[in-house]
């Protein structure tokens, strides 16, 4: 009894809990930066640790040790609370993703809905942070983030319903368990995978859709007024969101930790997560920024009908 309690505590705190997830966030920020740099024929971070591996950690420490400015006109309580919200939300969602075996730390019927809900709440927190900092650039950035959410949210949710309909469950762990016996959903629903990838690029505010923090238009968007510790937490939160997006893609469409038995399931999960994050990074290096109206038009005109078509195909074809 005591032993079980200690094991579950260690799972929550160390592996695959907080410590592992935060280390993974730092590692995948490095992977993202290095991969994009190599695609642009650059070296990327090089002199911080072996091959620049410690670069995100150095950024994080530096920002923690910098002066923390709260603007005079800002809503001080909300302004200080938003980085903590934004850090805790992706961590909560990541606990619902199965990592070491096919059952997550937190798994119940309907945790897919919870994860989709958390991705929405993240954008709402972004908006609160932008609004509470009372900077005109922040406000414009927050508005853009919300407007963007009205676009990508609907096709993303519809596309994510595809695996849930086939597996007849709303739990991510059970969708993963279904894929250990059946086909991976990327083979039967490739359209859904593409839609979810595009929508996650918008969710993560990565380059084709980095409209809310477009540096050439609105300084740093909704991040403009955040400095020091708050910025450090926000950057860590963004990295965690990247890990969350990659692991949702890996769990719903690539079978999560399922794989051949010569390697442990955890290694399979890491491989799939890396592949998903490299897809996202590749698209980041490939495109230029869209305008907000182009994004909205594209999403409502093309992505939403395609997501509906995917659902119709799922209903027509039994597997």
């Amino acid at each position: 009894m005591v032993q079980e309690a200690i094991i579950s505590l260690l799972q929550i705190v160390i592996f695959p809990g907080f410590l592992f997830l935060i280390l993974a966030a730092f590692f995948y920020e490095w992977v993202d930066r290095k991969f994009v740099a190599r695609l642009q024929n650059r070296y990327g971070p090089l002199h911080t640790g072996p091959r620049g591996l410690l670069q995100p950690f150095a950024d994080f420490l530096k920002l923690l040790s910098k002066e923390d400015i709260i603007p005079y006109a800002a809503d001080k309580l909300l302004f200080s609370a938003v980085p903590i919200f934004l850090l805790s939300l992706p961590l909560t969602a990541l606990f619902c993703i199965p990592i070491i075996n096919s059952t997550a730390l937190i798994s119940f019927e309907g945790d897919l809905i919870l994860v989709i809900f958390i991705t929405t709440i993240i954008v709402i927190s972004v908006f609160i942070g932008a609004w509470s900092s009372t900077n005109r650039f922040s406000t414009v950035g927050g508005m853009r983030a919300c407007l963007q959410m009205l676009g990508y949210e609907i096709p993303m949710t519809i596309a994510m319903a595809g695996p849930a309909i086939v597996a007849k469950t709303l739990s991510i762990s059970k969708i993963v368990q279904w894929q250990t016996t059946g086909l991976w959903f990327i083979l039967t629903q490739p359209l859904g995978f593409i839609i979810v990838t595009i929508c996650f690029l918008a969710e993560l505010q990565k380059i084709p859709f980095d409209i809310p923090k477009a540096e050439t238009e609105v300084v740093a968007g909704w991040l403009t007024e955040f400095s020091g510790k708050k910025l450090a937490l926000l950057r860590l939160a963004e990295d965690l969101e990247l890990v969350l997006a990659g692991s949702i893609m890996a769990s719903l469409y690539l079978g999560g930790p399922a794989g051949f038995s010569f390697m442990p399931p955890f290694v399979w999960f890491i491989i799939k997560l890396t592949v998903c994050i490299l897809i996202l990074s590749n698209l980041r290096a490939l495109f230029a920024r869209f305008r907000i109206d182009q994004l909205m038009r594209g999403v409502w005109k093309y992505l939403t009908p395609l997501a509906l078509l995917q659902i119709i195909l799922v209903e027509l074809i039994p597997w």
């Binding site: 990327g44 002199h47 620049g52 540096e215 991040l223 910025l231």
Partner: peptide, 14 residues
Amino acid sequence: IERFGMLLKGSPRH
């Protein structure tokens, strides 16, 4: 210059 960890930032706060 990203080799040395330098990034160009838009906001003075960063």
